[in-house]
Nucleic acid binder design. Structure first.
Lengths: 147, 147
DNA sequence: TGTTATTTGATAATCATTATCAATAAATAT
DNA sequence: ATATTTATTGATAATGATTATCAAATAACA
C-alpha cells in the first residue's frame, strides 16, 4: 500500500470518527493533501480541483484544510510573506528545504534534531512540544537556469 | 559598550550610508529594535512609543521596520497565525524558543546547526542561503502557573 | 424515501499590512 | 542663519488572504 493511500485512509477515518460527513469535495481535497506533492497552497489545491469540480468554492478548500489541520492531520507551513503551504503526507514537524526561486519544497533526511531538542529543553527550562526547521536556498534546477 | 548600543550605532550608520534622513521617530524605532527585548511586534513598538510620540502613526512603524529589514538589519519572525515579531539585536538567522502560553521568545545557544546545514546541502544539492529554526513549548513560568 | 444536521457556494466581513498623498521636516548649500 | 530640495510623516484608503455568514443543497441514517 503506497504511503499516500495510507494517509488518505487515515485522514478519512479520522473524519468519520469525528462524525464529519464525507462529501465528494472533501474526498478530493483529502486526496490531494494525502499526497501533498510539492507542499501545495490552498490556491494550488483549488486550482487542481477546478477541472473536476467547476463549482468548487475557495471557501470550501479553506474550510476543509482548517478542519483537517484541527485534527492534526496536516502540517501548516506559514511564511513571513503571508503564504501558507500544507503537508498532509507528513503532518508532524520535520525539516524543509525551500527554493527561493521556484518555491519548490523538499524534505531532507536529518536525524540530529532530537539531540538538539533535548539540548534546548535543558538549557532553557522549556517543555518543548514542537518545532519548525526550514532551510532556504536555490535548488539545482534553478542554479542551472540562472546563467 | 553594551551590545544594544553597538547595534543602535550600526543601524543608524547604515541608514546614513544609504542617504536616509534621521528623524526622531526613526531614532526611537531603531532604539527599540537595537534592544529587541522580547522580540517585539510592530504593535508592541507602536505601544512603547505612543507615550513619547503621541502623534506617531502606526504606518511609520511599519515603514521603518520594513526599511531596516530591507537593509538586513532586522530579522523578521513571521508565524502561521499571521503575527510578526522582530529581532534587530541579532539580525541573522538563529534558533528561537517560543512559549505558546505567554509568547515569550528566548535565544538558546546551539552550535550543531552548521553541520546540519552542510548535511542538507550535500543531500539535496541546494545552495543553502538561510534557515529558520523555532522550538515551541511552555516556559517554566507558565508551567508553574498552570496548576 | 423522509428527516435532520452538516456542508457547500457565494459573498460579505475582518484584520494585518501596504499604498497614497498633502503637509512637514531633515539635510545641504547658500 | 535661511532657503531649497527631497525624504518622511500622519491620516486614511486600498489590498489581499483568510474567516464568517446564511440560504440552499446534500450526506447519513432511520
Amino acid at each position: 500500500m503506497p504511503d499516500s493511500s495510507k494517509r488518505f485512509e487515515t485522514i478519512i477515518q479520522k473524519l468519520r470518527d469525528n462524525n464529519h460527513k464525507i462529501t465528494p469535495q472533501r474526498l478530493a481535497i483529502v486526496e490531494i493533501l494525502a499526497k501533498s506533492i510539492g507542499h501545495p497552497s490552498v490556491e494550488d489545491i483549488y486550482t487542481q480541483l477546478k477541472d473536476d469540480f467547476p463549482t468548487m468554492s475557495l471557501a470550501t478548500v479553506y474550510r476543509n484544510v482548517l478542519l483537517i489541520k484541527s485534527m492534526g492531520e496536516v502540517l501548516e507551513l506559514g511564511f513571513p510573506d503571508g503564504s501558507n503551504r500544507y503537508d498532509g503526507n507528513k503532518p508532524y514537524p520535520h525539516p524543509h528545504v525551500i527554493c527561493i526561486k521556484c518555491g519548490k519544497i523538499v524534505d531532507p533526511d536529518l536525524e540530529s534534531l532530537d539531540e538538539m531538542r533535548e539540548e534546548v529543553a535543558s538549557e532553557t527550562n522549556f517543555k518543548i512540544i514542537s518545532h519548525r526547521l526550514d532551510f532556504f536556498g536555490v535548488c539545482s534546477d534553478c542554479s542551472k537556469k540562472k546563467q
